Simulated assay, not measured.
Amino acid sequence: MLQQRYALPIDQPFIATGLMQKIDSGAAWMRPFYAVAARTKFLFPESGENVPFSIRNTCKVLPSGELEVLWERSFNFEKKTRHFNARMTIDPVRKVVKDYLGSPSLFYSDLHFTVTTDGRLLIRSGIQRFILPKVELPIPKVLEGRVIVEEGFDDKRQVYTIHVSIHNPLFGRLMMYAGEFTQQSI
């Protein structure tokens, strides 16, 4: 099912809805960072339990001929809907997924994909950069948001499962969410 989920035909989106059993943001003193990040559909300050969630992944061909997948994630908290968007392409030479986070993108991260022995997808972040209008600046390791994503499919319950953790060595947790979702018919 994960192979099917990631085999995205061009211009035919994967759409799913579900529930995040738990969402935790970072420390309260980081609110100014979250305020800027939320405006660019990246990270956000809210935390909660049993938060309705939707995702839309759309593959398109860029003018360069490269394929890009747009990730649009929405978290529907009681008083506000928050978004976590990204644009991803593949770098076949370096064998990484290039992940531009937010709309517009303020951060970039290499993503390394592996498959666990039980068939779950494990994604870890690599090199990260800060995106400015005309330049990308390396983020020092001590300031990086280290990402671990584990995605699977529960055959008995017929749901996709997801656990995302973004952690910084100095600041602690930046974001964590865990839940499940099912594909919707178009």
Results as ranks from 00 to 15, higher is better:
A28L: 11
L70H: 10
D110C: 00
L132P: 01
G179I: 03
K41M: 00
L19A: 00
N50A: 11
I10S: 05
R129M: 02
S47D: 03
G145R: 03
P13M: 09
S125T: 02
P104A: 01
Q12W: 07
T117F: 12
M175N: 02
T117Y: 11
F181E: 01
V51S: 04
L70Q: 13
M176I: 07
R5Y: 13
F53E: 05
F171P: 03
N50C: 05
F153T: 09
M176W: 03
F84I: 03
V96E: 10
F42M: 15
I186K: 10
R5N: 01
K134E: 11
N50S: 12
G65C: 09
P45K: 05
I123K: 02
D24Q: 10
P63G: 05
T116V: 10
I148K: 13
I10E: 11
F153R: 06
K141M: 12
K95P: 05
R56F: 04
P32H: 01
M175K: 07
V135G: 02
E72F: 03
K80D: 06
G152D: 13
E78A: 15
G119I: 14
L106E: 04
L106C: 10
A28S: 14
F113Y: 14
S109C: 08
F33T: 07
Y6C: 04
P169S: 10
P45G: 00
R56Y: 02
Y177S: 04
S185N: 13
N76K: 13
R82G: 03
F14P: 04
F42S: 12
D11F: 09
D154T: 12
K41R: 14
M30R: 07
L143K: 05
E46H: 07
T182F: 00
V96Y: 07
M20A: 08
Y100R: 14
G65F: 11
L8R: 06
P13N: 10
G119K: 14
G172M: 08
L122I: 06
Q128Y: 04
L43Y: 13
T116A: 14
Y177C: 08
H163G: 01
S64A: 06
P104E: 00
L2E: 05
Q4G: 01
Q183Y: 01
C59M: 13
T58E: 13
P140G: 02
F53S: 09
G26I: 08
F181D: 06
I10R: 06
E72R: 13
G119R: 14
I90E: 10
K98P: 05
L170N: 10
T40H: 13
V36K: 12
T114C: 11
T161W: 04
P104W: 03
M30P: 01
I166R: 03
V147L: 15
D110K: 01
L111N: 13
E180F: 12
R157F: 09
L106G: 11
E68N: 10
I23H: 01
L174K: 00
E78Q: 14
P140T: 08
